[in-house]
Amino acid sequence: MTTTGPGIFENDAAQDFLTKLQSAPPTAVGDLVSAALRAVAQAEKPLTAADVQSALAALALLLAEFDGDVLTGATDPTAVQAWFVDLEVELTPSRRQIADATTSRILLAQDNGWADLWADSEDGRRARSTVKALRDLLADSASPE
């Protein structure tokens, strides 16, 4: 049975991506997170919903230090956040740049299976709103305190 909801972790792809990260060697997690973001930002083919959902999960992990609520829907969000913090995977300038490009690409409807999934529905508005909130959190996290 496939689970698909508008929240970041309300789908099988995001949960599977998180499981993949947690099963990976700790030194590989940062590269896997970056790869998920690049798969969307630099896609040369139409986006799949699964690629977008994995990228959103990767972005949520990177932004959880600024707002832990982005992990809502993950199994045991507090433990996930603690695990990710322990890995010391940072939102580096290059990851920030690719994350910004990722959110921009996700919000483009053209050649976007994720956008097609949510077209003209209330859940779609919620899903797009979540992406916009991540984009805003990403921008806010770059501002000096």
Results as ranks from 00 to 15, higher is better:
residue 1 M to F: 14
residue 1 M to K: 12
residue 3 T to H: 14
residue 5 G to D: 03
residue 7 G to C: 08
residue 9 F to I: 00
residue 11 N to R: 00
residue 13 A to H: 03
residue 13 A to M: 06
residue 15 Q to A: 07
residue 16 D to R: 03
residue 20 K to N: 12
residue 23 S to H: 12
residue 24 A to N: 05
residue 25 P to F: 14
residue 27 T to M: 11
residue 28 A to P: 09
residue 29 V to R: 07
residue 32 L to P: 07
residue 35 A to P: 00
residue 38 R to T: 15
residue 40 V to S: 00
residue 41 A to V: 04
residue 41 A to N: 06
residue 42 Q to T: 12
residue 43 A to I: 10
residue 44 E to Q: 13
residue 45 K to Y: 09
residue 50 A to Q: 08
residue 52 V to P: 01
residue 53 Q to E: 14
residue 55 A to N: 00
residue 57 A to D: 00
residue 58 A to R: 01
residue 59 L to V: 01
residue 60 A to N: 07
residue 61 L to D: 01
residue 62 L to A: 11
residue 67 D to W: 02
residue 72 T to M: 08
residue 73 G to F: 05
residue 74 A to K: 08
residue 74 A to R: 08
residue 75 T to R: 11
residue 76 D to A: 12
residue 76 D to T: 07
residue 77 P to G: 10
residue 87 L to M: 09
residue 88 E to A: 14
residue 90 E to Y: 13
residue 90 E to Q: 14
residue 96 R to S: 08
residue 97 Q to R: 15
residue 98 I to P: 04
residue 98 I to D: 04
residue 100 D to C: 05
residue 102 T to E: 04
residue 105 R to C: 00
residue 106 I to M: 05
residue 108 L to R: 13
residue 108 L to K: 12
residue 110 Q to D: 15
residue 110 Q to H: 14
residue 110 Q to T: 15
residue 112 N to C: 04
residue 112 N to L: 01
residue 113 G to D: 06
residue 113 G to C: 08
residue 116 D to C: 09
residue 116 D to G: 10
residue 118 W to E: 04
residue 119 A to S: 07
residue 120 D to P: 01
residue 120 D to V: 05
residue 120 D to R: 06
residue 125 R to N: 14
residue 125 R to F: 13
residue 126 R to C: 11
residue 127 A to N: 07
residue 128 R to Y: 13
residue 129 S to T: 15
residue 129 S to M: 12
residue 130 T to E: 11
residue 133 A to V: 13
residue 139 A to N: 11
residue 140 D to M: 12
residue 142 A to V: 14
residue 145 E to P: 11
